[in-house]
């Protein structure tokens, strides 16, 4: 591969897309070997762009906070991709092999900011997948959050009556 060309992987859940492009020509992307051509029709503040993709028009907000992930917001849906470059893939492989990689946290993560109303479990409890372990109130509605897996409650970080931020690990499960 020439210097000006790059291939990355975009990972969203169980789907992975391969994207290839040339740094000297940003108007084209090969996604899973299919050609997509781009025109930026209009740009607004706050990373909003109107883009035509093979002449189909999209108004999107592009959040590229770091080089590791990217979020595309459309009307109604949000798409988030982890970006794996040649370097990041190598690095990951190295970390995995050396056994120092921090595993993905298993447990319940706050899907949005809110207030913990009730915790329905204690450390050491045996729980089943879909058990509703914690209730978080957001925007005046109570949301019962279910466990994504079966196991044992390892740690409880949620405190009743306390506010939590989006992404906080509320309950850790082994």
């Amino acid at each position: 591969m020439k210097d000006m060309q790059e291939e990355i992987k975009l990972v969203s859940g169980d789907k992975t897309y391969s994207a290839a492009f040339d740094h000297t020509d940003t108007s084209k992307v090969f996604l899973d070997e299919k050609l997509y051509e781009f025109k930026v029709l209009k740009e607004y503040n706050d990373n909003v762009k109107v883009i035509s993709v093979n002449n189909k028009v999209f108004t999107v907000k592009i959040n590229l906070e770091d080089q590791d992930s990217i979020e595309i917001l459309t009307t109604g849906f949000g798409y988030k991709y982890d970006i794996k470059t040649a370097t990041s893939s190598l690095l990951e492989k190295f970390v995995r092999q050396s056994g120092k990689g921090k595993g993905k946290v298993n447990g319940i993560v706050a899907p949005m900011p809110g207030m913990v109303v009730k915790v329905n479990c204690a450390v050491g409890d045996q729980i089943l997948e879909n058990d509703k372990l914690v209730i978080v109130e957001a925007m005046k509605m109570e949301n019962a959050l279910a466990s994504p897996l079966s196991g044992t409650v390892k740690k409880i970080n949620a405190i009743e009556g306390k506010a939590v931020d989006k992404g906080t690990v509320l309950i850790e499960i082994e």
Partner: peptide, 26 residues
């Protein structure tokens, strides 16, 4: 289904934006 229909385009846009960002920086 509606969401996955848009997913391919979103992925293409993501790759485009990634490349554009690198390019702009240069």
């Amino acid at each position: 289904e509606m969401k996955s229909k848009g997913e391919v385009y979103a992925a293409a846009i993501a790759a485009f934006a990634y490349n554009l960002n690198k390019n702009t920086k240069k």
